[in-house]
Amino acid sequence: MVQINSTIGGEISQTLVTAELIFSEPCTLPESQIEKLWQIFSQIGEHWKDVYNESKNLKSAWLEMIKAKTSQQPSYSAEYINAVLVIEELTQLYGEQQAYKTLFFSYKIPQSQAENNTEKTQPILTTLLAHAKYYVIDEFIRMQVLSGGFKHFGGQSNASGEVIKVKGVNYKGFVKGSRYRNENLARTFEGKT
């Protein structure tokens, strides 16, 4: 059961900010920052066990996304620097394993109350921690899943819920395609037509 927790972290994590993307000019992040961000990304595969051969196969696609999001306005550079600082603080407070576990599985961005049933709740992005989760972790997760992480889900499972036959073949955002028309590009219906 997921514990709802919106008050983790220390001074950095709980610093108050406005909801919009933290402003920064487009720039190239230093190699060391990119490496730290890559460590954050790789932890997704570590914790959900949804990549083969670590995350390395996804690195060039991931780097392309980072470049696209930092080299143009609105630039994510400040958000990326912030996420590294937040995770460093969480690591200092809880240790690396627990920091990621808390961030991935128990931290929840607080949500605004919907005024009536037709309105959607909105995330309240008033802390640096909420920014790191919303603009960085969540977007990394989407990127990781559509780039191949999805293949570890779906299909049949054994009694304890473990996948025994990996069946996901295609997913929104995954570049499947083929030069060969007879290759199945998705799980297809083989029944009577």
């Binding site: 991935f104 128990s106 931290y107 929840k108 972790i137 997760i141 989407r142 999805f150």
Partner: peptide, 8 residues
């Protein structure tokens, strides 16, 4: 799937 992961 991504949303379910995001939800923890």
């Amino acid at each position: 799937i991504a949303q379910l992961m995001i939800d923890g």
